[in-house]
Nucleic acid binder design. Structure first.
Length: 270
DNA sequence: CGAGGGACCTGGTTGC
DNA sequence: TGCAACCAGGTCCCTC
């Protein structure tokens, strides 16, 4: 389940080969992702990919004629492979390079998407309203405090809202709140600036550490080289229901918030 | 207007 | 053992 660290790991893994060689072709095997893959993606043919960037959980492949926008949804995975590598189940889309390699998208649950835009991709309807990047200076305690003012929801919902801050999915929201010592159901308009500063720092720390370790592999994330993400070993609360808190030895509790599993320590998080 | 829930999808796990 | 039900999860979008 790719969150920001997994997307960033993927971006770093595919960039070098993608910008080395022009695109020979695009192959759509299964157009029915979250939205249909548009035929416009064939405009990539004969184009050079100039840059591979990331905005939130979206990957952006720039060319002179437009930008390919890729989202991995919950189960998507991008690999760079020799183009004649046998196709596996759920290999929905390829960008074939002149070099003989190809970028291959596999996405069993098909919650991801592949889109095309000729405009500035940051102005695309899916990207233009995204919140701040968590690893930039703009994201800090004051920003969270300000976002929380006119909002009554619980803190976990706020940090998972991509219109507030991008890239914090369920795993890292749980882990960040534990590190900051904040209860996931705490109303966000009742949290002090000091605690928001701690939370912003926790989010940055957790995300950076996860990127360093290549993301978190639970069931289905593997990096572009097929290696698992080692952040899984660092999880303090996620998927640890009834196991003991490493800090206070009390059992980790699991509740459901917005139909998502939420894990926290009843003693360490207030 | 904002908050909340449904829909999308498949593979793996659980329960009978 | 076989089958059905359920769950996971990101995010848009519709409804209240």
């Amino acid at each position: 389940m790719p969150e920001l660290p997994e997307i960033e790991t993927t971006r770093r893994g595919i960039t070098k080969e993608l910008i080395k060689s022009p695109v020979a072709d695009a192959i759509i095997r299964q157009p029915s992702l979250r939205w249909p893959i548009p035929d416009a993606v064939y405009q990539l043919k004969q184009q050079q990919i100039l840059k591979v960037s990331r905005r939130g959980k979206y990957l952006l492949l720039d060319s002179a004629v437009g930008t390919l926008i890729i989202h991995l949804g919950m189960s998507g995975c991008l690999r760079v492979l020799p183009k004649n590598t046998p196709v596996k189940k759920h290999d929905h889309f390829d960008v074939v390079l002149n070099s003989g390699l190809c970028l291959r998208l596999n996405d069993p649950r098909r919650f991801g998407c592949v889109l095309w835009t000729k405009e500035n991709p940051l102005q695309h309807r899916l990207l233009k309203n995204l919140g701040v990047e968590p690893l930039t200076k703009r994201f800090d305690g004051a920003y969270l405090k300000q976002k929380s003012q006119k909002c009554s929801k619980e803190i976990k919902s706020l940090i998972m809202d991509s219109h507030c801050v991008v890239g914090v999915g369920n795993i890292y929201a749980n882990e960040s709140l534990f590190l900051a010592g904040i209860h996931p159901k705490k109303p966000c308009n009742k949290i002090s600036l000091i605690r928001y500063e701690a939370l912003a720092n926790s989010i940055k720390l957790i995300l950076k550490q996860a990127i360093k370790l290549g993301g978190t592999t639970l069931k289905d994330f593997y990096s572009t080289t097929g290696k698992p993400g080692y952040f899984r070993n660092e999880l303090k609360v996620y998927d640890r229901e009834n196991q003991l808190c490493y800090d206070c030895q009390k059992p980790i509790r699991r509740i459901v918030m917005n139909s998502r599993s939420t894990y926290y320590c009843t003693y360490c998080q207030r």
